[in-house]
Amino acid sequence: MGLAKRIIPCLDVDRGRVVKGVKFVEIRDAGDPVEIARRYDEQGADEITFLDITASSDDRETMVHVVEQVASEVFIPLTVGGGIRALDDVRRMLNAGADKVSINTAAIARPEFVREAAERFGNQCIVVAIDAKAVHQPGESPRWEIFTHGGRRPTGIDAVEWARRMNAYGAGEILLTSMDRDGTKRGFDLELTRAISEATTIPIIASGGVGTLDHLADGILLGKADAVLAASIFHFAEYTIEQAKRHMRARGIEVRL
């Protein structure tokens, strides 16, 4: 008995509303972040991640209010990603009630930002999000590169090297998304996940590609992830978080139930 592996549902929020259609039974307002977060908390979510996909920076203040409302009613850790570019963005989200922020593009633009944010606010609240794609040819040894702009723009940065560097700069955790698998329902890129987990000393959250409950368990057992993040399988009520945890437990994984 000891530390549980975590399940983290992820919600995309646009101008204060949850998008990509959450389909719970008997939910009054499927776009309301507070109601959805409360539902996930009841199901036993270990944390909740909000990804702010609001395009206009004018509307970003809306996310602060969303976090404030959720944090007044849901008492599990909350992470906010999307649009975190400056120390002031980090401070605003933490003050609103977020426990962690996830930094992606801004870290690539200026890696020192991660170091500064970790020093100012503590490693525990700085998550570095890594979007990676396989770039090796068949028969070559595996290699992944960081991509930005939803997987469209290559950066030339090696994903494993980058994870190691972010670890050294004070990231408290890595949110690793395989852009090859995201949205495919074919399961995590386990080789990538394992490579990053073994190259670093901090917890890794696996993301991208979950279609079945076995995929979640594989992420932990084969990918060596410390937590698994998923969106659609929970949003569309294919499975509840409790079902997912029971399945993981049946496969020998320690979970909070």
Partner: peptide
Amino acid sequence: LKVPHMGWNQVRQAGDHPLWRGIPQDSR
């Protein structure tokens, strides 16, 4: 094991302190 120690872990209560009241042994 990863550091930081991050996530839900169990607490084995030693003694019956009033602040543990109503909280099952080994809760996370």
